[in-house]
Write a protein that binds this DNA or RNA. Structure first.
Lengths: 189, 189
DNA sequence: CCCTTAAAGCAAAACACTGTGCGTTAAACT
DNA sequence: AGTTTAACGCACAGTGTTTTGCTTTAAGGG
């Protein structure tokens, strides 16, 4: 027995299966019936898991949904690196839109809006980080770039806004248009 | 007794008082503890009303919150009319931001994001209508204007995005900056 | 002023969610 | 292999939410 109290987590096997099943169930249920109808018993049933396991691990639905949102809304691809900021942004915007426009992700996004009420959510913080990296890299190469704020306001915001509040508007060319318009803001001819 | 069945609503007196009290209670509770903690019993208690009255009139929390959101997020001022589209937009954007940035309205906005999952919400539809009216009026006067889409993407979207997902960013000059940038998109010098 | 009846209140039952004690399973480490 | 114990499942208790039948109140109309 060790005198110090380091809990020693359990990361594999059954526990891992339970965690994965629960997270998938949350995603499914949110996509199916909206975030407001996701309850612990429902998730447990769908995941084939005991409700008490969920309560003990996550505490309540809020934390669970928050965790799934931050995990699943995160980018899963490396940053584009074409050498030109405009092309990088175009590809980046396409990826962002394509990623979040899927109904399941859109529902998660809306769910995390409510969670933004109680302090921190930041399911989109990593997107801002990415924008910062893109800008810094291009500036180091001497390119003229929009500011991070401008990228957030005129590229990210419209994309998120449409997905969140006007899901019907499906338009593949949309991100490209935004990048073009952002370009006009940055350097008028 | 009449052969026809026209229900004959009751609009005044006690019913009106109950409705008003319930709506106020919803707004208060959402502002206080977030949309996910608004329950029918809580609203009933705060409003000094019987829970069953709420269930019978509104059915469930969702419908109730949706109703309050559409009512309270609507603009309550006449459209600006300065004669120049840029000034109109500037004033309009300031009003929009000032109106929705208040914590109570912001919480309502986030709540209605979740409700957008199940079909229609459109608590912002009237804002789009307003933008349309502004544009049409200015065009009738021969002015060059941004399109309604551009107004939604580069003016409304950033404002809503910030309020919804990044509430900490308080910046009074923000709407003005956006209008200036929108102007650069529309007509480059 | 009185009648009709929509809508509110009350009370209790039905249902759903949350939390805890306890025995069991199996992950991590030797 | 064997030991330890984190994490799971089960069952049940406590609490909160939703529904319903019935009674009471008062809005709207003659």
């Amino acid at each position: 027995m060790s005198s110090d109290s380091v809990p020693a987590r359990r990361t594999g096997g059954r526990s891992a299966l339970v965690i994965a099943a629960v997270r998938d169930a949350v995603e499914d249920l949110i996509a199916e019936s909206g975030a407001d109808r996701v309850t612990v018993p429902a998730v447990a049933a769908r995941a084939g898991v005991s409700p008490s396991s969920i309560y003990r691990r996550w505490g309540d639905v809020g934390s669970l949904v928050a965790e799934v949102a931050t995990l699943r809304l995160d980018p899963d691809r490396p940053l584009p690196d074409t050498g030109a900021i405009d092309d990088d942004l175009r590809e980046w915007a396409r990826e962002l839109y394509g990623h979040l426009a899927r109904p399941t992700k859109a529902s998660l996004l809306r769910a995390s809006a409510v969670l933004a009420d109680d302090g921190e959510t930041n399911c989109l913080a990593s997107r801002r980080d990415e924008a910062e990296r893109l800008v810094e890299r291009a500036r180091a190469l001497g390119q003229t770039t929009p500011s991070v704020r401008q990228i957030m306001d005129h590229l990210v915001a419209p994309i998120i806004y449409r997905i969140t509040f006007e899901p019907d508007t499906v338009d593949t060319g949309f991100p490209d248009t935004l990048v073009t318009e952002l370009h006009r803001i940055t350097e008028p001819s």
